[in-house]
Simulated scan of single mutants.
Amino acid sequence: MADELRELVKERRQTLGLSYQGLANAATVAAPAAAVSTGWLHRLETGEPVIAPSGPTLAALAAGLRLDAVRLREAAAAQFFGVRLPWAASGEAAEVAELVESLPERQRRALIDLIRIMAKDV
């Protein structure tokens, strides 16, 4: 079993400076119906067996981690079910998409325009 979700959650939680409790609280505030437990987070990050998260749990976790829910769903699908999108093999496309989304709108549009121009020259 791959560790895509485990690594993504652990890295992002640490980047945000959140404890397990802090992340669980942030996820619960974002989606009260989908509680994320500190025990589940700990087991996930330490590689212990965990039950695959539900869609609502992943959405809550994405909100708590301030990540796109699609990215978390893809990581969960890869880790728990071995499902990988062909473009995500290197992880670069997902990283580029996340970086583009983090740009201010004006810069994002300029970058997309540049990519379109460069793609025409290929």
Rank of each mutant, 00 (worst) to 15 (best):
A77G: 08
Q79T: 14
D113Y: 07
F81W: 12
A63N: 03
V83P: 07
P56H: 08
E74S: 08
L72V: 11
S37V: 03
P32W: 00
V83R: 14
L18P: 00
A31D: 09
F81C: 12
P56N: 04
P32D: 02
P104Q: 06
L16R: 14
Q14K: 13
T57W: 03
M118N: 14
P32M: 02
R73H: 13
D113G: 13
R12F: 04
V50Q: 02
L111V: 03
V36N: 01
N25S: 08
F81A: 14
L18F: 15
I117S: 09
E74Y: 07
R116C: 07
V70C: 08
V122W: 04
L61W: 00
A88N: 15
P32E: 00
A2F: 10
Q79I: 11
G47I: 08
Y20D: 10
V96C: 03
D3L: 09
Q14V: 08
L99W: 11
G22E: 06
W87D: 13
R13F: 10
P49C: 03
A77P: 07
A75M: 07
D121Q: 15
R73D: 10
G17D: 06
P86M: 06
L41K: 04
V100S: 00
V70S: 12
I51Q: 06
V29Q: 08
L61S: 08
D68M: 03
L16S: 06
R106V: 09
V96I: 15
A110L: 14
A30I: 07
L85E: 12
L5H: 04
S102D: 09
V36R: 00
F80M: 03
R106D: 06
A76Y: 06
Q79V: 13
P104D: 10
T46S: 13
A119N: 10
N25P: 00
H42D: 06
V83I: 14
I115R: 06
V50E: 00
G47K: 09
A34I: 07
A30M: 04
T28L: 02
P56W: 05
R106Q: 08
G39N: 05
A77S: 12
P104L: 03
R12Q: 13
M118F: 09
T57P: 00
D113F: 05
A63K: 11
L58V: 14
E74W: 09
K120H: 11
L85F: 10
Q21R: 13
V50K: 03
T46P: 06
A60G: 10
H42I: 01
G91P: 14
E98N: 06
P56C: 03
L85A: 13
A26W: 02
A60C: 07
L114M: 12
N25V: 07
R108D: 00
Q79M: 09
V36G: 06
L18Q: 11
L72Q: 03
S54P: 10
S37H: 04
A110M: 12
G22K: 11
L41I: 06
L67E: 08
S90D: 15
E98A: 15
V83A: 12
E74V: 10
A27Q: 04
S102N: 04
G17I: 07
A69F: 00
L18E: 01
G82M: 04
L67G: 10
V100C: 01
G17L: 05
V83K: 14
S90G: 15
G39V: 02
L44N: 01
T15R: 14
I112P: 00
V96G: 02
